[in-house]
Write a protein that binds this DNA or RNA. Sequence first.
RNA 1: GCUAAGGUGGCAGAAUGGUAAUGCGUCAGUCUCGAAAACUGGUGUCCUUACGGACUCGGAGGUUCGAAUCCUCCCCUUAGCGCCA
Length: 456
Amino acid sequence: MLDSKFIRENVKVVSENTKKRTGSDLIVKEFINKDKQLRELQLELDNLRHSRNKVSESINEAKKSGNNQLFQQKIKEAKELPEKIKKAEEKYGLLEKETKEILFKIPNIMHKNVPLGKDASENKEIKKVGQIPKFNFPIKNHVELAENLKIADFEKSSQVSGNGFYYIKKELALLNQALIRFALDSLSKKGYEYIETPLMLHEKEVYASMDRGAIEQSVYSIKGEGDLNLIGTAEQSLLAMHSGDTFSESELPKKYFSYSMCFRKEVGAHGINEKGLWRTHQFNKIEQFIFCKPEDSWKYYDDLLKNTEEIFQKLKLPYRIIEMCVGDLSSWKAKSHDIEVWRPTIKEYGEVASLSNCTDYQARKLNIKVMRDNNQEKQVVHTLNNTALATSRALVAILENYQQKDGSIKIPTVLQKYTGFKIIKALAIKPKSKTKIIKQKHPKKILEKKNKISKK
RNA sequence: GCUAAGGUGGCAGAAUGGUAAUGCGUCAGUCUCGAAAACUGGUGUCCUUACGGACUCGGAGGUUCGAAUCCUCCCCUUAGCGCCA
């Protein structure tokens, strides 16, 4: 949320920004109006309370001095006040709630360079990195590849949990763990602090990181457990970790990274009914998160992008960077870039990481501040986040980009020390159709191979 | 989960129905060539141009003219017991 005082003092800036982002600045006008009423009501309420405090004080004095007549008279006088105060309080509470709701709807002030555009189709491509692989054989998508290799089971998972879940098995599951370790090591070396967080949060903390719309579309809440919700990203739990804290200047920046499971409803999301690992209700993610002084946030923004790029470069996966245009920028962000990885099967880039500078918008909701050295003044900190690696999408990219003619999958070199194997070997026997069995020329060799594997 | 004791500013620690003592820390000023000590003033949030005022004792309600204090519900901490990956 924005600072009410800032809105009052910069109506023009906020209105223009809101209009640019949502097409209308009506909510700003509405806020100004409500906020004015609210402050008038507060003055009224304060005056009522003041007179109560005064009367109470005089009652106390009368009691102490033993002036019984005055005491009785004042009590009589005081008895009328609580009712009035209660009414004013109720009115105030209601108006305050309304005003806050509107305040939450006013979007963050964008960075001045955010490109114009209506929606995702108008996002700006910044650069492309890496060689797009060429295949001299018909390629398969990750679902076919994984099912043929029997390293994933999407039938069973949809049976037991519904669509959007997965069983990954054997080499694929180990590759998943290898990706996690690889990303953790990569960020550890950069001096970021590793954190493991709660996977459930109260509503207030979840709400701090995003807006109402995003929550309704993504957040799972736990039935019968008060207002507990599964996190959609460790961004939420990392932000909440410093809820209410005031840092000294020397403590900042706080650079964190975290590994967690993420849970998302994906209501209305395109592709949630598609089989596979690309869009799922549950996935593993290594997330980067920074709390910093306001003047430093753009510097760290670049760092966060570099860290993730480095990971994809080391995995030798072709990717591109795009910048979110106004129409595709979430309300709480000041600026955002995505990293998209190449998917040869659909001949498109697909989102694998999302970088954001939320400036002070998130931190204000949880009252996270920094005490300035010079003038002893507190200032709301800036928060930034970027995916380091969401493993399920990286798995898709690896399966599809590293597939071989025989259906086996090469393991990216940097991951081999974590997996312990260099290739996910194609299965020798394909018993599905008779013709294929006939085609197999060396059944002895196949048997030998099988024995070797089972010995391992 | 049970039992017991607790939860008051950055920290320690009083106030048991009369409007949050005090100490430490910290910041500023005086003094000093400078520092220390000493002294003086400030040190949570909000409203107000200001004068002022309101709020704040883990949270939410309630009783009362008035609640840190009494009542109800909830949360958390510590210790012991129980259960458990």
